[in-house]
């Protein structure tokens, strides 16, 4: 993922939250809250929901695999060997 895709993802989430906040405003509920502040609050909530859903999706996709084989510690080099 490059910076453009990542920025697009965040912008999309914010745009979605801005639309929701606008819809809330026209209904008259929370009329005393600044629409920008409301959109930020909704964005924060949506972002947490997004991360939560993403975690579930990745928990399903990224299945744990146990790989068979012989593994020795010979290949691990600590500080002493690096010197």
């Amino acid at each position: 993922m490059n910076i453009a895709k990542f920025a697009a993802l965040i912008l999309f989430l914010y745009l979605f939250s801005a639309i929701i906040s606008y819809m809330i405003r026209i209904t008259g509920i929370f009329a005393w809250i600044n629409i920008f502040f409301l959109s930020l609050v909704i964005f924060a909530i949506l972002f947490i929901i997004f991360i939560f859903i993403l975690a579930i999706v990745y928990a399903i996709i990224k299945k744990p695999e146990i790989e068979e084989g012989n593994y020795s510690i010979d290949k691990i080099r600590g500080k002493e060997e690096m010197k």
Binding site: M1, N2, I3, F6, I51, L54, A55, Y58, I61, K62
Partner: peptide
């Protein structure tokens, strides 16, 4: 440099 995968960005521990 940017992390390439969405899962690695959020759950890999090293960030984007």
């Amino acid at each position: 440099a940017f992390q390439k995968r969405l899962g690695a960005i959020f759950f890999g521990g090293e960030g984007f």
